[in-house]
């Protein structure tokens, strides 16, 4: 993959496995991607595809079974020394899914927010610290009075804002958002997403947005990667992928999202994805900055497919290549 803008995060050949009953499950199977500085990169997929595991491995909650993770050019497996790790922990932060479980119920909000500040010694004295906490609360749209409250006094949306403030408290460069809105009410989801977008622009953050809500991910992301069973099946510009998906799994996924449009829904047909083990596949470039998981011999087919879609020929129907039986999109 070419790197024109600087890669803040680069993942190469990342594999993560877990022991399960009889054997070993490959939660993440040899994936590679880069996140450019200042962009929002969306990682999308259904449950079990490995997206959350990827996020947690990047932030070093697990050690990868294989592969490397580079942050700002530095290989994390070679990171040594307390000072370097402390810096890493400042640079990369995480926002969690469950606003009810991720805040310590025994701590006041100001202590939750102050913890990071204290660990990294970002404030000189209590007064300065309190001011930083108040500023953080305002930044995420909360009343600074909330500093003296406990988590259970806040609503789900407010708690998630606290989670965001907590991540921001140490002035990070990259924030990994692990399903930050799925546990929230619909009208609150939009608020949080707008907040994240605004913060990203104001503070020049880089976001890795992990979610299964495809519409939201497309809205907030610049580029996205679609994951299925531990592999990235398609990677590229967010809008392009949604308008003309190439990989049959992406097509199937998009065909299942319901629209708030009854007439359209009555006429739509779901595309079913039939999975075949493609042992010899990997990510290949189809168009500049648009990659699909396939064999080298299928690249031409996908280029043709993409071109036809651009021309407006194909709609929700998927075509099969004439030479192989591996790729199948069946219209139901």
């Amino acid at each position: 993959m070419t790197t024109n803008i600087s890669d803040l995060l680069r993942v190469e050949g990342l594999t993560q496995t877990f022991k399960s009953g009889t054997g070993i499950v490959k939660a993440v199977d040899n994936i590679s991607f880069s996140v450019y500085e200042g962009e929002t990169f969306g990682l999308v997929g259904e449950s079990g595809c490995g997206k959350s595991t990827t996020g947690r491995t990047i932030i070093q909650l697990y050690k990868p079974a294989a592969g490397s993770i580079f942050f700002d050019g530095v290989n994390l497996s070679g990171l040594r020394g307390k000072k370097n790790w402390l810096q890493f922990r400042r640079d990369v932060q995480m926002i969690y899914q469950d606003p009810y479980a991720s805040l310590n119920p025994r701590n006041k909000i100001k202590d939750i927010l102050g913890e990071g500040i204290d660990v990294h010694k970002l404030a000189k004295g209590a007064k300065n610290r309190n001011r930083q906490v108040a500023e953080l609360l305002e930044t995420v749209g909360l009343n600074p009075d909330h500093a003296n409250r406990y988590p259970h006094e806040l609503s789900g949306g407010q708690r998630q804002r606290v989670g965001i403030a907590r991540a921001l408290s140490v002035q990070p460069r990259l924030i990994i958002c692990d399903e930050p809105i799925s546990a929230l009410d619909v009208s609150i989801q939009a608020q949080i997403v707008n907040l994240l977008k605004k913060l990203q622009q104001e503070k020049r953050l880089t976001l890795l947005f992990i979610a299964h809500d495809l519409s939201m991910v497309k809205y907030i992301s610049d580029r996205i990667a679609v994951m299925y069973r531990g592999k990235i099946v398609e990677l590229g510009d967010a809008r392009k992928i949604y308008h003309s998906p190439l990989h049959p799994y992406t097509e199937s996924l998009l065909s299942c999202i319901p629209y708030p449009d009854p007439d359209l829904e009555k006429n739509r047909r779901r595309i079913i994805y039939h999975h075949h083990e493609e042992a010899s596949g990997s990510l290949h470039q189809i168009f500049p900055d648009h990659y699909v998981y396939c064999r080298p011999s299928d690249v031409a087919f996908y280029q043709q497919k993409g071109a036809s879609k651009e021309a407006g020929g194909l709609d929700l129907v998927s075509i099969t290549p004439t030479n192989t039986g591996i790729l199948e999109g069946v219209v139901e």
Binding site: V186, Q189, Y219, L254, P260
Partner: peptide, 11 residues
């Protein structure tokens, strides 16, 4: 409000 706050794929 509900209809407008749904991000649809063609926004």
């Amino acid at each position: 409000g509900l209809l407008r706050s749904m991000p649809t794929l063609d926004d």
